[in-house]
Structure formats: C-alpha cells, structure tokens
Amino acid sequence: MQTAKTSTTVTPLRQLALHSTTTCSSHATAYGKCILAVYADVRKDSCKQEFEKFGQCLREAMKRKW
C-alpha cells in the first residue's frame, strides 16, 4: 500500500521524532517535568542541565553532532 511506503521513509526528522519519544523518553520526561515546575517564569536555560542530558542522548542515538 502506498501509505505504508511513505510512512516508513526514514528522514532525519523522523529519526529525531523517534528518538525523542522512545529512545530518550526518560530524559525527555525529566526535562518536561523541569519546565512544568517553572513554566510560569521560564527564561533562557531555565532547565539547561536537564536538556543537556536529553540532547546528549539524542546526539548519541542519531549518531551525529549539531
């Protein structure tokens, strides 16, 4: 079926989507919870530490740097 073909095409964005929701989901949750705790007063790098772990996990899973 045509839908099956299109949905399995792996683009970098699809990979990012996959890894941010599955491979690195625990780091994503930790980061999300941190933002949730401060969301009324967020400023730059409010959750820097949590995001660094999340970002590190994503970079390893994607096998590339950015």
Partner: peptide, 15 residues
C-alpha cells in the same frame, strides 16, 4: 532548531 523541536515535544507531553 532541532533542539527546540525536541524540547517542544517533551514539554507538550508533560504539560
């Protein structure tokens, strides 16, 4: 930026 997108995805889910 992909960092921003990934962050938004995490925040969307938690919030």
């Amino acid at each position: 930026h992909r960092d921003t997108l990934a962050a938004a995805s995490a925040i969307y889910k938690e919030l």
